[in-house]
Amino acid sequence: MKLAIIKYNAGNIQSVSFALERLGVDFTITDNAEEIMKADKVLFPGVGEASTTMRYLRDKKLDQLVPALKQPVLGICLGMQLMCRHSEENDTTCMGIFDEEVKLFVPKDDLKVPHMGWNNVVKANGWLDPAIENQYAYFVHSYYVPVNSYTSAVTEYITPFSSAMHRDNFYAAQFHPEKSAKAGELVLKSFLKV
């Protein structure tokens, strides 16, 4: 199996590639359309700001390529948010794979924004290994996707939100599997098995 990591101005490409290396996965890091299309699976990482990142993806025409992919695609963190319809982060139109709005957390009581640290993941349904149930994953984000019909795991912070999603061949995680110790490896392995 050959996996392609989409190369763009995302901050966590190195960490994601090391995580795959630790799992013994054969992968390439590329922004070449042909190479991405012929990969068995595609990983769409993401750390950064939505509007700048979408502009970059548009310039490279990756915003059209990703939604058209037929093989399993995993979006991580900002990658997951860019797979939604629109983000409140600088009023950004995203790729629309998940017909959902990405919203800004409003701080409440002692709960600070960004949501940063380890929080538990409650599996709702679908592709994730059942062993993920109630395990802790590492999150860093200020925007979230509300619970919706695509939600495959829920985490609670200020409000319950989607910590993982799935639609057809598209999979997504709001947390960072590449930084989430054993729980993260479980999620990557779940994706490698779909």
């Binding site: 190195q14 960490s15 090391f18 995580a19 290396e21 630790r22 590492y138 860093v140 960072h176 590449e178 930084k179 989430s180 110790a181 054993k182 993260g184 490896e185």
Partner: peptide
Amino acid sequence: VKDIARHINIP
């Protein structure tokens, strides 16, 4: 730093 990132799976 790169060597650390290669071997550890937490932030």
